[in-house]
Design a protein around this nucleic acid. Structure first.
Length: 509
RNA sequence: GGCCCGUUCGUCUAGUGGUUAGGACGCUGCCCUUUCACGGCAGUAACACGAGUUCGAUUCUCGUACGGGCUACCA
């Protein structure tokens, strides 16, 4: 393994938006490849025409890009193993399929879907074995094993629809070695004769992924746990082709579960529990249904990636914040957990908060600028940076900042009743009226001078801070929130402060 | 039903044949702040169960329970 070049693939099918479990799979593939100076390949598995969804492929690519996951080979950018879309590799699969048929590892089956269904129902009702097309039932179904050679040929030539199935041996032991889970042994008798090529002439996943992984020289197959049950079949296919030496190593990732209860995280959970299940917003082209995304919800891609990275993997230290390059440095498949992880929307928010407070105020100010313009305000950028500095660590998302800073731009028109009732005393208007003169003479109008002058005013007149400072806050902010009132005053400016104080005196009963 | 995988605080997890079983999110309290947050500190809470191996098992083995995945001419 060490002397071989590391090549991994992420192979989604464009049947809809990629959900966060898929992004995590891509992420683990990516960081694993980069750690070992290998290649990360994007391959589109679009062999099911019926389920093809317009726009899904672009969505997948955009999601990966937004997450900072760039592929080295794939559709659009190409590579040495083109094409990277399975629908364009039809002929390749046909060639390998006929090899399997020739070697006697696959066979033609003419049963209609209804006939197969009937067989299943019959076995189920009789309770006479596994309700599947396997080494037992194939003996009485309509296929090239039960038909004569001439009859088979005749049917194919006459254009009768058929599928090609794997001829799974009756009872051999198949061993699967998984990097995360260790050895797994399966009796081939419990497997069914999976369809390798559908009646439409396109291969199923099982054939296509084995052929492509071989041809694309994939060294490690890192995919979700839902593939574990079909891995013995894949191993069998490598054997059939005599590719055992080149067989990739497998690593099956634990699933992402829904936050409540159990079960695979699904698209409905997001809407039901109020958190995004998808990296980007998605609008269903058929019914117009809209699914929310992390990007549109205000998450930083770094925070999103960090959240996913730690669901199922942990380096064994107490570190929780990882940049992409740190993930690349520290990731290892051996440290991936076996058990599934419930997704926690709360923790995801916390991660975003961490990234937000670690960003420079300048950076955050840039991001909030459009919102300020949209609210109809203009502000000198340096001043905005100072405001952001005061409020950014109070929120989880950039879009929550406006709520924390609106009073810098818009004077209060109403005053929070609760705090007024509690803290707006009978003497407050008089005190505030007196302090206006003091404020007028503060020079320079910065937090420090304001503090000094107000302090001496309070001392001289024996006024408690509880009266003056809270009074000022009510007048200037309108409610019991916000950063240090002296800082607020200096940023709002002397004239505006006085204006607000007068307004409050006149308007608070 | 069959096959496969899994099980440490509510959640994400660390960890070891002998530990006060560690951290983080959440929650609660205190401090800071005469505001609200942020932050700091503290508290809360876990080895699914039963056997076996062992001087000793959360750790190893088996079984049970529970959970999950797969069981398509889908991936």
């Amino acid at each position: 393994m060490q002397d071989k070049k590391i090549r991994v693939r992420f192979a989604p099918s464009p049947t809809g938006p990629l959900h966060i479990g898929g992004v995590r799979t891509a992420l683990y593939n990516y960081v694993f490849a980069k750690k070992h100076n290998g290649s990360f390949i994007l391959r589109i598995e679009d062999t099911d025409q019926k389920r093809y969804v317009q726009g899904a492929e672009d969505y997948i690519k955009e999601s990966l890009k937004w997450s900072g996951i760039q592929w080295d080979e794939g559709p659009d950018i190409g590579g040495n193993y083109s094409p990277y879309k399975q629908s364009e590799r039809k002929e390749i699969y046909k060639k390998y399929l006929s090899e399997l048929i020739q070697k006697g590892h696959a066979y033609y089956a003419f049963d209609t879907p209804e006939e197969v269904e009937e067989m299943r129902k019959k076995i189920e009702s009789e309770n006479s074995g596994n309700a599947q097309y396997d080494s037992v039932s194939r003996k009485y179904m309509c296929n090239s094993l039960t038909l004569s050679e001439e009859e088979t040929k005749k049917r194919i030539e006459s254009g009768q629809p058929y599928v090609v199935r794997a001829l799974v041996p009756e009872n051999i032991e198949i061993e699967v070695n998984d990097i995360i889970r260790g050895k797994m042994k399966v009796d081939s008798g419990t497997l069914d004769d999976k369809v390798l090529m559908k009646a439409d002439g396109l291969p199923t996943y099982h054939l296509a992924n084995v052929v492509d992984d071989y041809l694309m020289k994939i060294s490690h197959v890192i995919r979700g746990e839902e593939w574990l049950p079909s891995t013995p079949l894949h191993v069998l296919l490598y054997k059939f082709f005599n590719w055992e030496e080149k067989m990739p190593q497998f690593a099956h990732l634990p699933l992402l579960y829904k936050p409540d209860g159990k079960g695979k995280l699904s698209k409905r959970d997001g809407e039901r529990l109020g958190f995004p299940v998808f990296p980007l917003k998605w609008k269903d082209p058929k019914n117009g249904e809209i699914l929310s995304g992390y990007r549109e919800s205000g998450y930083f891609p770094e925070a999103f990636v960090n959240t996913l990275a730690l669901l199922g993997w942990n380096p064994g230290t107490e570190k929780e914040l990882f940049s992409m390059s740190e993930l690349i440095d520290e990731f290892s498949l051996e440290k991936v957990n076996k058990a599934g992880a419930k997704f926690s929307p709360e923790k995801a928010k916390w991660f975003n908060h961490q990234y937000l407070i670690n960003k420079s105020s300048e950076d955050v100010a840039k991001q909030i600028t459009p919102v300020i313009k949209q609210k109809g305000h203009n502000i000198e950028f340096n001043k905005l940076i100072k405001i952001v500095e005061l409020v950014k660590d109070r929120v989880n998302f950039v879009h929550e900042i406006w709520d924390q800073m609106s009073f810098f731009f818009e004077p209060p028109v109403e005053f929070d009743k609760k705090i007024v009732k509690k803290k707006w005393k009978e003497k407050t208007p008089e005190v505030l009226n007196n302090v206006i003169n003091v404020i007028e003479n503060i020079k320079p109008f910065d937090a420090n001078s304001i503090n000094n002058e107000l302090e001496s005013f309070m001392q001289k007149n024996e006024i408690s801070p509880g009266l003056l400072m809270i009074g000022l806050r009510i007048a200037i902010v309108g409610e019991a929130k916000g950063p240090d009132i002296k800082e607020v005053m200096s940023l709002i400016g002397k004239d505006e402060v006085i204006k607000r104080i007068k307004f409050a005196i006149d308007n608070i009963p």
